[in-house]
């Protein structure tokens, strides 16, 4: 495909190369996510201690979500400052909501 676009400017080639490098990162990210998922399921199958498994599971999930948001959804790119503000605003509210519904509802 790249050969056909002979009239492309240097800028375009540069951007394209950059995207290609990034795409490699994405694939690595994906492999890591798969590994994390397998680890998560394996921990359950291995029937390890609850107190150990639950925090690790949540950490693994958080890292996976970080990968999704920063790499797959490109939040690491420029121009995502306000999206990040509003997204983390949502995460903050989400945290408060879940905290309240798990900690303050017990009867």
């Amino acid at each position: 495909m790249a050969e056909k676009v002979s009239g492309a400017t240097e800028q375009f080639d540069f951007e394209k190369q950059k995207r290609k490098d990034e795409m490699k990162q994405q694939v690595i990210t994906f492999v890591l996510m798969i590994v994390f998922t397998i680890v998560a399921f394996a921990m359950i199958e291995a029937e390890l201690d609850r107190l150990f498994v639950i925090p690790v599971l949540l950490v693994l999930a958080a890292i996976q979500v970080g990968f999704q948001v920063y790499y797959f959804m490109h939040m690491s790119h420029k121009g995502h400052e306000l999206p990040a503000v509003m997204f983390y605003g949502g995460v903050f509210t989400a945290f408060l909501t879940i905290l309240a519904l798990t900690v303050l509802v017990w009867w």
Binding site: A100, L101, W107
Partner: peptide, 12 residues
């Protein structure tokens, strides 16, 4: 069920 969930969601 638990009726306090409504109260939390409503006031959040």
């Amino acid at each position: 069920g638990n009726s306090v969930i409504w109260q939390h969601l409503f006031w959040i």
